[in-house]
Design a protein around this nucleic acid. Structure first.
Lengths: 365, 365
DNA sequence: ACTCTGGATGAATCAGCGT
DNA sequence: CACGCTGATTCATCCAGAG
């Protein structure tokens, strides 16, 4: 079960190596690891402070380890650790590399150039991201994981049936909706977060369940607070962690000690919750179900309003969302525009809600 | 409406240039285009000649990418057209580049290396992706768009309020759920799809609505069947298309001819508050909406201040503008006095902002 | 025990103009 | 180009404490 194990016994299994990741990687033999999971520094290039509209200060990433300098310095470091990871990976092994738009494109290019074979780019769609406080961009609401095999010919592990089972019996997609690591799961010291970028265990759960078997060896060269190790232990996998900061390494060791492995049968998968998709009114306009300039009316035809290209409504007396305009025209505190407003289709009034249902059915199908 | 610009009249507006994209780009002047939208092909044949990806043989496309030489040919071409696009972009212009994991990491790296400034990576979450038939990977259910400004200092266009309105009054996120281009929208010839990767108009709708104004010039160097042109025309923007295949170009021209632009009023969007005319607080006093000597207070009535004839405020502890006094009293670095301060009107507290709106409406009228 | 409310917070390349 | 001023800007979730 543990695979061809010439080197298996000599590996520092289920231990955290404290030190520089490239040095420590050099101590690990060739072709000895089943999967690498790497969440390297993102090299954020933040300007000054950022405050919320209520004037509170955002506690951003301001750690020395995230400052890698310019692109050249970043790339030089990335080429080194990715090359070492490829050396220690078994021929049929795979690697997960995680990042944001600051670094992920560079990492992806280096992976391809070094001969890794890309299998998927996976999007972690955050269900509760931090908003954009200045209104100058789209809310940065996701991170990207690249999943790649050591080479094109690798016979890699993918637990297709388990993933499908975990996803209500439809194929697991390349986008995963998961919340941030908050609450009791978040490691704290003196009431403050111990690590600025601790990842949720649910994310590692899916990584490990999809691409490893029990007994496999998972190497994490940027171990941090040890989420990879905690989930690996719970799921009867072995881990090797490398972490530069002794404080993080100690916290990770304590965390993993307290993890109770799942019972052997229980190493199956939690079903994913599938909410009814939210469909904003603007979608109906974008997707051509309603044309800008068309007129909406209530069922008694007492009020009318015209649709604008951004999904706002305008009447003589009000402008805003379908809900706001309906409420203002009727002098009510609030009103559900989806059921209030109608549009003429084939000579008959159709509630907006009916058009929304059309879209929802398309999404579900 | 079209802005006073020297080169605007000489641009080949709302035309499709048939030929090699780099040659045709060379005919377009520097700093002349507001936005570039590019959905480039990524598979190359030997000799560096370009062909289009054929989705009916996805694995065949993948197979092209196993040689470093292909990467190099791709990158050499991408560097050329991205450099030309940067040259023709106005200083405050932005670019959209679209791709999948086969090419997007390389394009992102080149964008960064050429000095483009990344604003977002946007995920097109496909609501109806093609399933993965072999069950060896996650269903590839998304594509990536990179949105970047010409440089770090570009004062780019982002219609924040319009995007928020289109999304039921919450910020638009970096992941967009939209269906594939199917049904009547899909161009067909003899019952078969005309183009393997025709993009849905809803996707271009959101691109154009978010990052351009009416009258802007949008350049698409890989025009294909002209989705960019069709949506641009509908939304009162200008386009320039470049397409090397005459059959696609002809189909695109016919398609765009049949597009009916939306009514002029319907393409107006929810205005951004920062674009509204500036009204100094002193104007409210000058115009008699507030009398010197009246008392302002915050909503919780923790602070008060008196209005002076010159539009300054004075409290026990501070004197200055409405913003400065509010900030000093609360010991904050800054504060928006328009929303902080209230005044009693008809027995009820009214924010200064409401009085300012009265003046602005007078200006508009 | 339960509900309600206010405060805190999360990988963030987060302003624009006039002097 | 640096500096200072005006003034625009937040979503989902968890937790503590009040009622």
């Amino acid at each position: 079960m543990l695979g061809g194990m010439t080197s298996h016994d000599t590996l520092p299994l289920n231990r955290i190596l404290v030190g520089d990741c490239i040095e420590k990687l050099r101590d690990i033999p060739d072709n000895s690891v089943d999967v690498v999971f790497a969440d390297p520094p993102y090299n954020l290039q933040l300007g000054g402070d950022l405050t919320r509209p209520d004037n509170s200060r955002v506690d951003g990433v301001d750690a020395e380890w995230d400052k890698l300098g310019d692109f050249q310095a970043h790339d030089a470091f990335a080429k080194q650790w990715l090359a070492e990871c490829r050396r220690v990976l078994k021929e049929d092994g795979t690697i997960w590399v995680m990042g944001s738009y600051h670094n992920i494109f560079r990492l992806g290019t280096i992976l391809q150039d070094q001969g890794y074979w890309m299998l998927n780019d996976v999007i972690w769609h955050k269900s509760n991201p931090m908003p954009n406080f200045r209104g100058r961009r789209f809310t940065n609401a996701h991170e990207t994981l690249i999943w790649a095999a050591k080479s094109k010919t690798s016979k890699y592990t993918f637990n297709y049936a388990a993933m499908k089972m975990a996803n209500d019996d439809v194929q697991m997609r390349s986008d995963w909706t998961l919340p941030l690591c908050t609450g009791a799961e978040r490691l704290k010291t003196g009431g403050r977060k111990l690590h600025p970028t601790q990842k949720p265990e649910a994310l590692l759960w899916r990584v490990i369940m999809s691409s490893t078997r029990t007994g496999d060896v998972i190497l994490d060269p940027f171990f941090g607070t040890g989420t990879t190790g905690a989930v690996a232990k719970r799921l009867h996998r072995n881990f090797i962690g490398i972490e530069r900061d002794p404080a993080y390494a100690m916290a990770a060791a304590a965390r993993i000690d307290s993890v109770l492995p799942a019972s052997k049968e229980a190493v199956t998968i939690t079903p994913a919750r599938r909410d009814e998709p939210r469909v904003p009114f603007g979608n109906l306009v974008e997707r051509g179900l309603i044309r800008p300039g068309e007129t909406l009316f209530d069922l008694r035809r007492r009020y009318t309003a015209r649709v604008h290209a951004d999904g706002s409504l305008a009447s003589d007396a009000a402008r805003g969302s379908i809900h706001q305009v309906a409420a203002q025209l009727q002098h009510l505190p609030s009103c559900n525009g989806w059921t209030f407003w109608h549009i003429e289709r084939q000579g008959r009034p159709v509630p907006l809600d009916a058009l929304r249902t059309t879209i929802r059915e398309g999404i579900d199908a």
